[in-house]
């Protein structure tokens, strides 16, 4: 049986159920890399040029981690998953960056997913995958068709407030009773849910009795509300989620008490989107914090800042008076390192 390694990185956090079903139905064995850890991060950092953003470094680490354990590592070339929108230039180049990085790299299963010109272009990706794995047409189509439903299955669990990891693998998180407040944690899923890249932000918030909402836990129609009234349609799928969710929260008071954006240093998309969101939040005096992490960020600095933010939000909602959030907002620290 062919074994396929799936790196626990990048769009794994969105598409894993679908990928898994597709690959297993095709008769492959799926091996998932472990949650990001120091070793994986170091592997990735050593294999890439400095300038690459931390999530891509982590992805390299996962690929290398899987290298000797599997026949192929699944690194699709994700250009676009919807019309008129892209993922990110770096992810468009990722398979080639892996291939030519000068390290000994495993064989890649790397279909081209580009739906910017319509859904039918998926046919090309399927035929590429099929040829690499040596499968015939019908089983491939069948597997693909069956895999389409998988993501809907986990949707319910996501909407109930579980993170993708919890929703995919059936681990549950129990709320501790107590006075709750709710904070939105927004950012690209591979930042927000990665234990190392997020510096366990969600954990930390939950431990301090804060409910966390992320863009993945928000139904699409709410995100669309947020996106209404943008002067120009966004052409990045990931940013649509972040900005849509963020603007929705800013427009809908009392849905959450504050917004934390978590991004990577050097992320091109977030450099624009986080700033746009921050400007909107500031105009509505909505509590907002931007955490920028990179591969050197430690948890310690983040803990203090998050605590301060929670205290500020708490104070604000308790007094319901006009404690201006401005001080905090303008204190946008440049980096958490």
């Amino acid at each position: 049986m062919v074994t396929i390694g799936v790196p626990r990185a990048l769009l794994y956090y969105i598409y894993f159920p679908m990928w898994q079903r597709f690959l297993t139905d095709l008769g492959c064995k799926v091996v998932l890399s472990p949650p990001t850890n120091e070793r994986i991060l170091n592997l990735g950092t050593q294999a890439t040029v400095d300038e690459v953003c931390a999530p891509v470094k982590v992805a390299f680490g996962h690929v290398l981690d899987l290298a000797d354990k599997v026949d192929y590592v699944f690194v699709p070339r994700l250009v676009s998953v919807e019309p008129r929108a892209y993922i990110c230039p770096k992810l468009m180049g990722l398979p080639d960056m892996v291939k030519h990085s000068g390290n000994k790299m495993p064989e890649l299963l790397s279909p081209d997913v580009d739906l910017s010109r319509g859904k039918m272009s998926i046919a090309r990706a399927l035929s590429e995958a099929r040829h690499t794995l040596g499968k015939s047409v019908w089983p491939t189509l069948r597997a693909f068709y069956l895999s389409l439903g998988e993501n809907h299955k986990v949707e319910q669990r996501l909407m109930s407030g579980l993170t993708p990891e919890e929703a995919f693998h059936g681990t549950a998180w129990r709320r501790t009773p107590g006075v709750r407040m709710k904070v939105a944690v927004l950012g690209h899923p591979y930042n927000v849910y990665d234990p190392v890249l997020s510096m366990s932000l969600i954990e930390q918030l939950r431990r301090s009795g804060v409910d966390v909402v992320t863009a993945e836990m928000l139904p699409q129609h709410k995100i669309d509300v947020g996106l209404q009234g943008l002067s120009k349609e966004l052409f990045w799928t990931l940013s649509k989620k972040v900005l849509g969710a963020g603007l929705y929260f800013v427009k809908t008071p009392r849905e959450v008490d504050g917004i934390i954006v978590l991004s990577s240093f050097g992320c091109g998309l977030e450099s624009l989107i986080a700033d746009l969101l921050e400007r909107n939040a500031r105009r509505s005096e909505f509590p907002f914090m931007h955490l920028i992490g990179d591969e050197h960020s430690g948890e310690a600095g983040v803990v203090t800042r998050v605590e301060a933010f929670i205290d500020m939000v708490k104070g604000r909602s308790e007094h319901a008076s006009n404690i201006s959030s401005h001080g905090n907002l303008q204190h946008r620290p440049t980096s958490t390192t």
Partner: peptide, 16 residues
């Protein structure tokens, strides 16, 4: 320029 996404992709491949 620093953080330029497409050129970072290229930069990663140029050594090859």
């Amino acid at each position: 320029p620093l953080t330029c996404m497409p050129e970072i992709v290229a930069q990663s491949i140029l050594p090859r």
